[in-house]
Amino acid sequence: MDRISRGLKRMTMYLILIAGAVLFIFPFYWMVLASIKTPEEVFDLSLIPSKVTWDSYVYMFDRIPVWGSLLNSFIFAGGVTLITLIFTSMAGYALARLEFRGRDVLFSVILLTMMIPFQLLMIPLYIIVVKLGWMNTYAGLVLPVSVNALGIFIFRQFFRTVPQELIDAARIDGAGELKILFRIMLPLSKPACVTVAIFTFMGPWNDLLWPLLVTRDQEMMPLAQAATLFGLEGQGGQWGSIMAVTTILAVPVVVLYLFFQRYFIESVSSTGMKG
């Protein structure tokens, strides 16, 4: 009796999990499917297209500079990530391993800045970008959103676990603090680097609001913005080609995710922070 009820319970659990998986994966399948269906079939419920066509992709490539936008996305997300990695690891190292006056106060202040919502900053940041003449430039896109306290938090946490002897030995060899950071601390902290990089990269890659404010020139738009404007355009936009552009937008991050799945998920459960 007990075994039967246990089996039943397992069945239910599997059913729930499979239903969940379908719920989460099917829409993506439906999206890719729509992008390769013929316009006549797009509204059909058929799960396998009778004919595969690339027309939607051709149409989309015709209308928006997809490659340029992808490059812009890489520069935007990559630039923010690079700056964040360098500057927050430096600050994180100082906060973790060096003694100096005001350290704890500074750290609390930095933690406090994590609570400032972007909505408070968006108007002044936009005005700053305009006044600096940074509209429609990579500088305007990247620099104002490269302040990221999460990196400091993670690096500080990680650097504290590195044995002091390693640092002392390097100092005796005459290494400066930056050399210690880049030659010893960072190579030992690959998981921290990957976590910070992933979380930082995803933000700008997926972001719509900030590019919407500071890039108004088609040639400078990251793909998330270009896709949005393409999709919202009244005339000529068709679901097939909209699904084609969203597919292209989703692919890089999904690939990244499949490779680094562990980091994505572990960092959520360990920090409880939102990327």
């Binding site: 360098i86 940074w134 430039t137 990579y138 305007g140």
Partner: peptide
């Protein structure tokens, strides 16, 4: 390295 990175970004702006 950092400074030159910044410079590149600023330069594209100007």
């Amino acid at each position: 390295l950092c400074m030159s990175l910044l410079l590149i970004l600023v330069q594209t702006a100007c």
